[in-house]
Design a protein around this nucleic acid. Structure first.
Lengths: 257, 257
DNA sequence: GAACCATACTTGTCATGACAAGTCCGCGGC
DNA sequence: GCCGCGGACTTGTCATGACAAGTATGGTTC
């Protein structure tokens, strides 16, 4: 059974835009042309175009054909929750050294974030994360027991924890990230090569399953000379998709000789 | 001339959701009911519902009525570029002390950000920003001359600079925000009551006019104990509107006695 | 009481047709 | 050469109709 017409039309145009066959600034085929080409009516064609507008790929149009606005889609969701996916998207080899993985009892603070009882066992990891061979982040992650226990037969230095858990049936729902600034502590000094007290960019993340249960709490501290978070946004009348964010690697400052 | 039917249906349902008349979890009226109520056909009614889905207010539905998912919309764009608007949204009185407003020649770095020639005059402000009477941010803002010169006959401690410029014809296009962490300097110490070297959460913003010209570069440093940035996101299959960000005021830590 | 089936109600998808409103271009008149 | 107008093409909006597919409920049978 093939996909609905409006999905096929949208997919075809999207592929042509992302590949550059339809360049930024080029006019999109008219609704009439698309109806002829796909042997359909304006309804599904208009729905396909509405989808591309919503994705921010095309815009404009009343009285004239819409034009291609941008060539890339917003970064995928999993690049925000999986360091490995993010690194892959940047084209930099990710790396990690697991300093420890431990089963502990949840503190009251952690329990509050994960909506479990204080004292309930959780699985905690402390890891150094690298990009292109350089440490850029210290990750303090806590998983609830049901998912964390699956990590003990998994080598956390081998591939992505997220991919492993998804392979074990995890269905990720939404994630919430809070960004603030903290002074480096002793672990950070040891793992990032900074001085105690130096400012670090911290992302605190709580991730939920599709069913709405929190399964992961993470405190990730980045070297701010290497990583920033960037957000682009636009006023209301424009597509909300103008509102995107992504984490950026700063160019490595050149060594003065 | 009244608005199109699909806009009126969407506005009515949105108002009922935001007011709580349609509570989170409640079923939305069926398409047939809405057709009867508005004396229209399924086309515009479905378009109205699609808009509300896209805004993340309702979801679900095939074979049954959709349900209300959330009660609030994403923060408006201008709350990201105007401190006054952001404070208003939080219900906290904003305040500001302008330390200086000066005409200077752009440094090479600034010129690069604003796409002007180094040495070209710009207007710079250094301001302390307050929420509820407390300093939370130091703002170092640079405007290109054409817009910045309009500020000299405006009291920057009186109302919002953005509102003033928009009143003078400014049309804001997109804005880009980069978040990182920096150590406090002497100005920050004086204006925020922190120690030199303390970590501050910094947002660097470049704002563009509708025509695509950069008009503002700003370096805003927040006390991370008072302000964090929060991003919620969701996987692809879900509406991209799940991807929202906003700046949050932390609850003021209670004074221990 | 449980299971199954049919019916009713729901949304998703599509076609056809019509008219309003915007944009662009060519042609004629001044 | 310029300006205005009309025609052609475009998208926006809406109506009517039809059928596919999903969900819930009530009634009947075991």
């Amino acid at each position: 059974m093939e996909a609905p017409l409006h999905e096929r039309v949208a997919a075809d145009l999207r592929a042509r835009i992302l590949s550059g066959a339809l360049a930024v600034g080029a006019a999109v085929p008219s609704e009439a042309e698309l109806c002829t080409r796909w042997r359909g009516s304006r309804g599904p064609v208009r729905q396909a175009l509405a989808t591309l507008r919503a994705e921010g790929l095309i815009s404009g149009g009343r009285g004239k054909r819409p034009t291609v606005q941008r060539r890339e889609l917003a970064p995928p969701f999993d690049s925000f929750v999986s360091f490995s996916r993010w690194a892959a998207m940047l084209g930099l080899p990710p790396g990690q050294h697991t300093v420890e993985i431990a089963r502990r009892k949840a503190t009251a603070e952690l329990a509050a974030h994960l909506d479990i009882e204080p004292g309930e066992p959780v699985v905690q990891l402390l890891r150094q994360r690298l990009l292109g061979g350089e440490p850029v982040m210290v990750e303090r992650t806590t998983f609830v027991r049901s998912w964390g226990s699956l990590l003990f037969d998994h080598d956390p230095d081998d591939g992505s924890i997220y991919e492993h858990l998804i392979g074990q049936g995890l269905q990720v729902g939404v994630a919430r990230h809070s960004i603030d600034a903290v002074p480096a502590d002793a672990h950070d000094r040891d793992l990032l090569g900074v001085a105690i007290g130096d400012p670090l960019l911290r992302e605190v993340r709580i991730a939920y399953t599709k069913a709405g249960d929190a399964f992961e709490f993470s405190d990730d501290r980045y070297r701010p000379d290497r990583v920033t978070f960037t957000i682009d946004n636009a006023p209301e009348g424009r597509p909300l998709f103008g509102r995107t964010w992504h984490a950026t690697v700063r160019p490595r400052p050149e060594r003065s000789i």
